[in-house]
């Protein structure tokens, strides 16, 4: 089981718009308390599965499942990959309740807690990835891995969410569901597709090109990136 012990302040501040870890004294004075309540209310859980993939005309077929990954972006992302890790991680619905409650008590605190919660689920994904690789065993030793690609990035349909959750049995195993609009619930949950390859993969990171917010993104306008 993964536990989160420390959250990245700099990253949380960046989600709030502050640059280089600098912020006003009021915000800074609230960070520690907000981090603590996020850590106290997070229940980190994840699920994953490893599947061979094959490229077809309709898209990339994932193992012996109904999932066929559509679009050009994922095709490019998984170039030269022979398998994928499908994963789903969540820090639980207790965080949803915390954010709901804090909004009624102190909205500025809620904004900080919301940012820390996003940081928390990303840190969980990082840790989960490490655990996953170490448990993959011989067959996947010395593999190269792509970064985490999620439904909704670029042209990968959000409608894949439900299929991925079904494959990983997440509603039953870790309590992550989706709804008609393909929103993941609890709110701080992530699904991701990681490609495995025998040859080095492009080191490109999640960037602005595949992001749906690229036209209105405040970071981008200010000349920054959100994936550094």
């Amino acid at each position: 089981m993964i536990t989160l012990e420390k959250l990245d302040y700099r990253e949380a501040l960046r989600y709030m718009g502050f640059q280089d870890g600098k912020a006003d004294p009021n915000t800074l004075s609230m960070l520690e308390e907000c981090e603590k309540s996020v850590l106290e209310n997070s229940v980190p859980r994840y699920r994953y599965g490893v599947f061979d993939i094959s490229e077809t005309e309709n898209g990339i077929v994932v193992g012996n499942t109904d999932l066929i990954l559509q679009g050009n972006a994922i095709r490019k992302h998984l170039e030269n990959c022979f398998a994928v890790v499908l994963m789903c991680a969540t820090i639980s619905g207790k965080i949803d309740a915390l954010i709901r409650r804090t909004q009624l008590e102190d909205m500025s605190k809620a904004i900080i807690i919301n940012s820390f919660s996003s940081v928390a689920v990303e840190q969980l994904c990082d840790k989960a990835e490490t655990e996953i690789y170490s448990s993959l065993g011989k067959l996947y030793e010395n593999c190269y891995k792509t970064w985490r690609f999620s439904p909704g990035y670029d042209d990968l349909p959000l409608s894949h969410q439900k299929t991925i959750l079904d494959i990983l049995d997440t509603p039953r195993k870790i309590g992550v569901c989706t709804n008609e609009s393909h929103t993941l619930t609890p709110i701080k949950s992530v699904t991701a597709i990681i490609g495995l390859s025998h040859t080095p993969v492009a080191v490109s990171k999640r960037g602005c090109v595949c992001c749906r917010l690229k036209n209105t993104c405040p970071y981008r306008k200010a000349g920054h990136h959100c994936a550094e």
Binding site: G93, D96, T178, N179, T185, I187
Partner: peptide, 8 residues
């Protein structure tokens, strides 16, 4: 699906 208020 999750029930309200976490889900819809």
């Amino acid at each position: 699906q999750l029930m309200e208020p976490t889900g819809s």
